[in-house]
Design a protein around this nucleic acid. Structure first.
Lengths: 206, 206, 206, 206
DNA sequence: AATGAATGAGAGTTCATTCAT
DNA sequence: AATGAATGAACTCTCATTCAT
């Protein structure tokens, strides 16, 4: 009665296959970071994953399919990679906003790879619907979350009541996205965050 | 009757050569728009310019050199393509801001090709210093102009005096750039522009 | 009945690969004979070996590497191709000398291809150190063998005792090499051999 | 009444043309020395001669024709390049022999370029009859001169009377040619010359 | 499940040669 | 007499993909 994951020889075949798939996706991801989609070669991916090129094609029928896999991996990363939770502030909406800021800082400083791959895939998505279908929802989800945050902030009385909910969400998304995609330096991110906060919040009493 | 330069047979040889160069750059530009840098083939470029592949290499030693030429062409486009001048408003700084908005709308609606090529080249610039050296100054120049605008607006009393000059310039650049690079729809651009204006300007008296 | 290695289906994979390599080298060798190194084309080599050009590059990373393979093949030929052994004469040293003559005749009459390829590679060796490193030892080995022969002949009392060992070896090598490289006709080779023998041997008593 | 060659503008057109031809041949010769026939490019030749590629083809219809011109130039070199005349010895035939030795030393030490181009052209001659027709007579002429020398030496009583005239001429040519073509070092040339002399001359009285 | 071997299609680049001027 | 511009044909090498085992 060994625990399910301990003995590799007993792992369910599909689990082994999943691990191979993940290895290949991970190898491809790393190589995209290093050399861009343009410099991505199936042979290099296979070598980095420690398998033969033919094996790569056993798990992914085409290079395109593997790239789609990378897109899924990236989307997963955006779901799971976050700064340490920002909590305990006077307002949950403001906490949420500052969490956005902190996350942006994490992407900029600790995970620039995610931004690189993101840009590569956004461009690829223009020509490859399969990739577009995976990347688009991320943006969509982000936008929805921001709109909810704005609504909550207004309701809490922390954000300016005259704020247009859609406009505010767009602005936050565009400004943070712009800093990251234009590759502006960390101080610019800090200033932009300050500006956004100033724009959203009710002015402090003097 | 006709001005001396109108007869093609009298055109200086270098002018003819320059025109071929421009044709090739333009052909490459169009093909990048259509198929991305990844799908760019020297043979296609030559065919579209109506010349032999060898002729392409007569004018540009390598494909890379031609791509650098495209980058220059794009930078030139960003200098020359603008919305009809916004003038006659109450404030020159506000005019300038609205010019920025109008330009962004032009890029979004009429010249999406420029945005596509821009993104392709930004990504390429990560690996090709020659391209980076051409693309980077564009961003730099934009940033500087915006900072001047903010300073002028504050001086005019039209922008909020408490504004941090650098922060405001960053925010405008990031927000507009973000809308365009994230490929947000025209209504979002409109909302973001409104938000930016609201953020910059002194609140209207009630 | 048949020895275990005769069934191609049982041949070790590396043996099969070695055979492909040999096929390619042999095809390249033949084409150098026919059209010179200058007229050597990878596609022709592949076609002659019955494979795709890409397969050629699977076994040899570059054309240069394949040519180095040809050089090795040639060196091997010079080791293994000889006239029927000359033995039973009154002196081993004289037998050895006459073996040299017979070998030269074989190269001239039956294997002129070896001389052609040799000359091509000697010239190539001037620019390609890899080739030089393979071709040079052949000459070196020949020279050493000749010097030993001369020493033995003197010791046997068959060659003139006043002979300078190095000079004699140089003369034999230069004269035989000169006939073959200058493409002198067979009668000239016969005459030169006679001259060499006369030069080396103690004059017969009258 | 300016001297015929002093004013370039008055030089006969054909003289100017001859000079251009010579410049191009010389440029080609030098480039063959530097990069071999294999690395010879019409553009490089033209550039080195200070003219346009098209001009090269104005004077030489094809690259082959230019190479034939180089062969002629080389033949001319072999006629005109010699060591300082060896004279005043006891025997004209021996003087002539020693002149051969001295010439060989000159080719080896001062004009290796001639040997390189010679080998390149000999190999080329195998495939290009035009080149062969120019290179072959050189060898032929050398051979004839040597035979005459041997005959004279025998008549003078300086060379051994039992010498076979043809064999001796062949041996000298093959031995000297072999040293130069096999690229043997200067000491080997010295030894070979000594051996040849010993072979040809009547032994000195003790 | 995994691989060594093989390939078709095509990539960028080169080069001797030509042509209009 | 000389050239800048142009080209057809070819070259080496690459790469995603396939197939027999």
């Amino acid at each position: 009665m060994s625990p399910p994951d301990s003995d590799p020889a007993v792992v369910a075949p599909s689990a082994r296959a999943d691990s191979r798939r993940a290895d290949l996706v991970r190898a491809a991801y790393d190589l995209i970071v290093a050399h861009g989609l343009e410099g991505l070669r199936t042979r290099d991916i296979a070598a980095r994953a420690g398998v033969n090129v033919a094996t790569l094609h056993y798990y992914f029928p085409t290079k395109e399919a593997l790239i789609a896999g990378v897109a899924e991996h990236l989307a997963q990363q955006f779901i799971s990679v976050h700064a340490p939770p920002v909590v305990g502030g006077p307002s949950p909406a403001l906490d949420r906003l500052r969490q956005e800021f902190a996350d942006a800082r994490v992407y900029q400083n600790e995970r620039p790879d995610m931004l690189v791959v993101m840009q590569e895939l956004m461009l690829r998505g223009r020509r490859d619907p399969a990739v577009a279908a995976i990347v688009a929802p991320s943006t969509q989800g982000w936008r929805i979350g921001l709109e909810r945050m704005v609504a909550a902030g207004i309701a809490e009385g922390v954000f300016r009541p005259t704020l247009d909910q859609a406009a505010a969400a767009d602005l936050v998304m565009a400004a943070l996205g712009g800093v990251l995609l234009l590759n502006l330096p960390p101080p610019a991110l800090t200033r932009v965050c300050a500006g956004i906060e100033q724009y959203l919040c009710v002015p402090e009493e003097e």
